[in-house]
């Protein structure tokens, strides 16, 4: 067993973990973050995507011990004071989910791609989400949602009530 200290969604944890334990299993089984899910065993589907120190990672492809000393943000840590992250809101507004199993990973990856490119066109969104599989939506509404979120997050856009300041948005202030 190895001792690790990790901050997950703003809460500090100190835990003993097996060296072979994947970050996703640590999050689900030890921290109780069941909002992050496992969809495959070859890191193709991206359902388990979280942010590790502000960048998206597939939490099935790194070990829990590699997160020692780091800050992890999951889908459960996005909302601020009861207000959804703009990307969460955009997924709802644009019917970008059906069964919802890929959604946590899809949202976390979308936030990351908007951090890199705050105003992506359709092709850039599709490229940015290439590592996340969805079987329900055909992706069209996901692409729409990400572009909608980009509009909401851009400076001066949208009603104030729908805006979250960049510093409080994970992945938004890079």
């Amino acid at each position: 067993m190895t001792r690790i200290a990790v901050t997950v969604d703003g809460v500090k944890y100190a835990d003993e973990v097996e060296p072979r334990m994947l970050l996703v299993h640590y999050l689900r089984e030890q921290v109780g973050k069941t909002g992050t899910v496992v969809g495959c065993d070859t890191s193709n589907c991206g359902a388990c995507t979280v942010h590790l120190d502000g960048r998206s990672v597939k939490s099935c492809s790194i070990l829990a011990v590699q997160a020692d000393g780091s800050e992890v943000t999951t889908i459960e840590g996005l909302a601020r004071e009861g207000q959804l992250h703009p990307v969460q809101q955009a997924f709802h507004d644009n019917h970008a989910l059906q069964c919802g199993f890929c959604t946590p990973g899809m949202i976390m990856q979308s936030i990351d791609l908007l951090g890199d490119n705050p105003d992506p066109d359709d092709a850039a969104v599709r490229e940015g989400l290439e590592g996340n599989l969805c079987r329900c939506t055909g992706y069209q509404n996901i692409v729409k949602a990400v572009r909608d979120a980009a509009d909401m997050m851009s400076s001066g856009a949208g009603p104030a009530a729908e805006r979250v300041s960049p510093s409080s948005v994970a992945g938004g202030g890079r």
Binding site: T34, V37, F101
Partner: peptide, 19 residues
């Protein structure tokens, strides 16, 4: 209508069997 189901699915408050 935007879906009622979404609220839990976009926030990780899900009840998958494996949970």
């Amino acid at each position: 209508r935007k879906r009622k189901e979404d609220a839990r699915l976009i926030s990780g408050r899900t009840r998958w069997t494996d949970n």
